[in-house]
């Protein structure tokens, strides 16, 4: 590799990292947080066996998991305007990523809740607690501990999935990289650099996950 390419990589590094920090990371974090809330609610109504709401939850999970993320982005951003709903690119992306994360994570959370031995729930009733108290203090803390590794997985997956938002004009890391590549003609080098920054982000998350898991191992 010649000096010119190195210089280009160096110059473009910040132009790639910056949209990563300003768009990719916030988009990931906001979508993931909302997604977790959706997942928790979706899992809870199923575990609590609330009629109708439970069926709606199942249908939601079914649709989201059965359709491509890219198509969902297009439906919301390019499709909705034709029925009079016009959303900006970033809100569209947040909606799609949140509901997508919510659907997948709800299955993780549901399985983790169901893995808590039913005897502990019965013991909770026997000491006088009610359903919500048992859920909040006994079941969910244990379930979230169980769900932590697979949820970390989803988070790491989402970091990379946000690159799909490039297709609906969100200038996140990948779209920024695309533009630089188009101008410089050093396509290989620039895309590898983009990949490298994603790898960087995900490595940090993986380390964070390991650290948190160690700290949580109290029971």
């Amino acid at each position: 590799m010649n000096e010119r390419v190195w210089q280009l990589l160096l110059d473009s590094f910040w132009q790639i990292l910056l949209p990563g920090i300003r768009v990719t990371i916030p988009l990931t974090l906001v979508s993931f947080s909302l997604g977790l809330i959706i997942a928790l609610l979706t899992a809870m109504v199923q575990v609590a066996n609330i009629p109708v709401v439970k069926q709606i939850a199942r249908i939601y999970v079914w649709i989201i998991r059965g359709t491509p993320l890219l198509v969902q982005l297009f439906v919301i951003f390019y499709g909705l305007p034709s029925v009079g709903i016009i959303l900006d690119a970033i809100p569209s992306a947040i909606i799609v990523f949140s509901f997508n994360t919510g659907a997948y994570a709800s299955e993780t959370v549901r399985a983790a809740i169901e893995a808590v031995p039913v005897g502990q729930i019965e013991a909770g009733y026997c000491v006088g607690m009610n359903y919500l108290q048992i859920m909040g203090r006994i079941v969910l803390p244990q379930a979230l501990r169980t769900a932590f590794p697979p949820l970390s997985n989803s988070l790491i997956g989402l970091v990379k999935d946000t690159s799909l938002a490039a297709n609906i004009t969100v200038v996140e890391m990948f779209l920024a990289g695309q533009r630089i590549a188009a101008n410089s003609l050093e396509v290989m080098a620039i895309y590898c650099e983009v990949a490298f920054v994603y790898l960087l982000f995900c490595t940090v998350l993986t380390k964070l996950q390991t650290y948190c898991e160690k700290r949580m191992k109290t029971y």
Partner: peptide, 24 residues
């Protein structure tokens, strides 16, 4: 219970006090 059914995420003392603090 036959298999104790202690709350796994609580200490012995918390297991004992949970019914007092939360339920009562």
């Amino acid at each position: 219970f036959q298999n104790y059914n202690l709350f796994r995420n609580k200490t012995a003392l918390q297991n004992v006090t949970e019914g007092l603090v939360v339920a009562r």
